[in-house]
C-alpha cells in the first residue's frame, strides 16, 4: 500500500515547525518516528497535505531528569529511553518500555509519538496516566501543560490542537518507598496488549491502571486490601469498564484479565514495596 501525495518539510528549528503547523493546521501531520503514522499513511487512513518531520530537531531530542520529573522530548525514541543510564529513577517506565512494540520499531518510535497517537491499548499512555504525568503542548506564542487524564480523550483522540505540537512528556518521579509492576497479555510479545496493567504501591495504597479495556487508560486508587476485598474491587472495575469484544478476545476475557492480571500485578507491586 502506498500513501497519497504529501509535501515533506524538515524544519531546522522548533519555531519553523510551529510556523508550519500554524500555516497548515489540520492539513499537516507531525512526523517523528513514524511507527504509527507511516502505517496509517500507507493505508491511506490519513491523507495530510504536509508532513512536518521533527525528528531532526536537536532541542526535542533530550531526556532531562531533576528531583521531581523525567522530561522526555518529542523526538526521543523509545530505544533511547531504554538505553538512558538514568532510567532506574522511573521504574514503571523501565518495566513497560520492553513491551512497547519490537526492538526494530522502538529504534524509531518515540515516546511522545505514542502518546500523541492515543491508542487505547498502548503502554506509554497507560504509564503516564498511572504516574499522573503531563504532556507539554506548544503552538506559536503559546505553551501549555495538560494532565494525562485530560490529554487522552478517546480512541486515538487527544487534546492536541490542529496547530499544536507535543514537545515533551513529563513523567513525575515520586519520593519515598514505592513498589511498581507492569504486566500485559498480548498474542505475541510486542504486539498490542489485550490487557495491560500498571501498578504503583506506596505505604497508603496502590494506584492501578488498565489499558486495552476502555477508550482511555482506566486509573483507580485502592487501599491495601485483603485478598477477598481486592477481588471484589477488581471485579467492580472489570464490570465498570465492560470492555469490547474483537478479533483478539471477547469482552469476558478482558474482564477476567482485569481480575487475574490486575491482582497479580498489584501483588507484585506491593511485594516490591520496601517494608518500613
Amino acid at each position: 500500500m502506498k500513501p497519497a501525495s504529501f509535501a515533506y518539510a524538515r524544519p531546522d528549528t522548533l519555531d519553523e515547525a510551529l510556523e508550519l503547523l500554524a500555516q497548515h493546521g489540520a492539513e499537516a501531520r507531525v512526523l517523528a518516528g513514524g511507527q504509527s503514522l507511516a502505517a496509517m499513511l500507507n493505508m491511506r487512513l490519513v491523507q495530510p497535505r504536509v508532513l512536518v518531520d521533527i525528528s531532526g530537531l536537536a532541542r526535542l531530542d533530550t531526556i532531562d531528569a531533576d528531583e521531581t520529573t523525567v522530561t522526555v522530548g518529542a523526538s526521543v525514541t523509545q530505544a533511547a529511553v531504554l538505553r538512558w543510564p538514568g532510567l532506574a529513577v522511573q521504574p514503571l517506565l523501565a518495566a513497560a518500555l520492553p513491551c512497547v512494540g519490537h526492538p526494530q520499531t522502538r529504534e524509531r518510535g518515540t515516546v511522545c509519538g505514542s502518546l500523541a497517537h492515543g491508542d487505547p491499548s498502548a503502554e506509554l499512555p497507560l504509564v503516564l496516566a498511572v504516574l499522573g504525568g503531563e504532556v507539554v503542548l506548544q503552538k506559536r506564542g503559546r505553551r501549555r501543560r495538560v494532565a494525562a487524564s485530560r490529554f487522552q480523550r478517546g480512541v486515538m483522540l487527544t487534546d492536541i490542537g490542529e496547530d499544536e505540537l507535543v514537545t515533551s512528556a513529563l513523567f513525575p518521579v515520586r519520593r519515598g518507598p514505592l513498589g511498581t509492576a507492569f504486566r500485559e497479555v498480548s498474542p505475541r510479545h510486542g504486539d498490542f496488549a489485550i490487557l495491560a496493567v500498571a501498578a504503583v504501591a506506596d505505604p497508603a495504597g496502590v494506584t492501578v491502571g488498565f489499558g486495552g479495556i476502555a477508550d482511555t487508560p482506566l486509573v483507580r486508587r485502592l487501599g491495601h486490601l485483603e485478598a477477598d476485598a481486592l477481588a471484589d474491587a477488581l471485579n467492580a472495575i472489570a464490570w465498570e469498564a465492560g470492555g469490547d469484544s474483537d478479533m483478539h478476545a471477547p469482552a469476558s476475557y478482558r474482564r477476567r484479565l482485569v481480575r487475574r492480571l490486575g491482582a497479580a500485578t498489584i501483588r507484585e507491586a506491593c511485594d516490591a514495596l520496601p517494608r518500613a
Binding site: G34, Q35, A38, N42, Q104, R108
Partner: peptide, 8 residues
C-alpha cells in the same frame, strides 16, 4: 534496525 516500509 528500521522498517524501510515505515520510512520515506
Amino acid at each position: 534496525p528500521a522498517r524501510s516500509c515505515l520510512l520515506y
